[in-house]
């Protein structure tokens, strides 16, 4: 067994909170450059120009690219040969978020209760997805998730007879209906299969894939392509001002499901598709 101290876990989480919010990934920057070169709408091209400049300022000055520094969503792969020492693991993750959001001058966007709406003051609690995997390491991925795009997300319990057309229509309609609200050009995470709660998790997880990297299964890779083409025909365009770049990518994550079911979830991410990871 390898021992990992909770102080190391906290320090790591604090670091990736800042990193994810300051440094936009090269995959996203590349997609912006493609948009700047290929968008047919002049206003749309201007949006890409601003987004590239914004990413440059954020990186150089180490400031958040967006004021919505999000809910801290943590995907943790915990090796089964790791022995966690020096405190409470969940508390260590939250302590890292608390520290990262405070030290990094990130916005505290979490209220303690959905109706009473008092700010928790330190962006905790995080939303944690924990998976036990073989090995003696811990992989932590942080995906700060903005509220505006999250609000445009949807889940539908489709039935098997609706087939791939049912899935494509649901995804395209969800993005089209969201229109200008989720800060297009968006990244679309699609969860497909599993059950009611699993499918939402899959949609979120799909957002972690490097932008535009197709699904390993050619069948789903084709569906991703078809969805992206249809979404980019809606005319929404960058920021909803009209244009052909409504989405930068569609990623599907699928899972086996019940004979009666065909659940689908669409998790919309704004263009600031942020994540950072570390292996301890």
């Amino acid at each position: 067994m390898r021992e990992i101290d909770m102080a190391v876990v906290s320090a790591t989480v604090a670091e990736i909170c800042k990193e994810a919010n300051y440094y936009l990934g090269e995959d996203v920057i590349g997609a912006f450059k493609k948009g700047l070169a290929e968008e047919v709408s002049p206003v749309g091209r201007e949006v890409f120009k601003q987004l590239l400049e914004n990413a440059r300022i954020a990186r150089e000055e180490e400031v958040p690219m967006c004021q919505d520094t999000g809910t801290a969503v943590l995907f943790v792969e915990l090796g089964q040969n790791v022995r966690l020492v020096g405190g409470d693991f969940n508390e260590a993750l939250n302590a890292g978020v608390r520290r990262g959001y405070t030290e990094g001058y990130l916005r505290k966007s979490i209220v303690k209760d959905p109706l009473q709406r008092i700010n928790s003051g330190d962006n905790t609690p995080a939303v944690v997805h924990l998976q036990i995997v073989p090995g003696d390491q811990i992989k932590i991925t942080l995906a700060p998730k903005g509220g505006g795009s999250e609000n445009m997300s949807a889940l539908k319990m489709l039935t098997p007879s609706q087939g791939s057309k049912g899935l494509v229509d649901f995804v395209v309609e969800t993005v089209s209906r969201a229109g200008s609200n989720p800060c297009p050009p968006v990244v679309v995470g699609v969860g497909f299969g599993g059950n009611f709660e699993k499918v939402a998790y899959l949609a979120k997880k799909a957002l972690l894939r490097p932008l535009g990297q197709p699904n390993r299964d050619p069948f789903y890779a084709d569906l991703e392509k078809e969805m992206l083409e249809q979404i980019n025909k809606t005319g929404v365009g960058p920021q909803g001002f009209g244009g052909r770049f409504t989405a930068l990518a569609v990623h599907i994550e699928s899972y086996p499901c019940h004979i009666a079911s065909m659940p689908a979830a669409v998790n919309i991410n704004c263009h600031a598709s942020r994540h950072a990871e570390r292996v301890i």
């Binding site: 954020a58 958040p64 004021q67 919505d68 520094t69 001058y105 990130l106 505006g148 609000n151 989720p182």
Partner: peptide, 18 residues
């Protein structure tokens, strides 16, 4: 709803919300 200002800044990041 801006992010907190870093030392030396007037305000933190400050884009529009929905």
């Amino acid at each position: 709803g801006p992010t907190p200002a870093k030392p030396g800044q007037v305000i933190g990041s400050a884009g529009p919300t929905t």
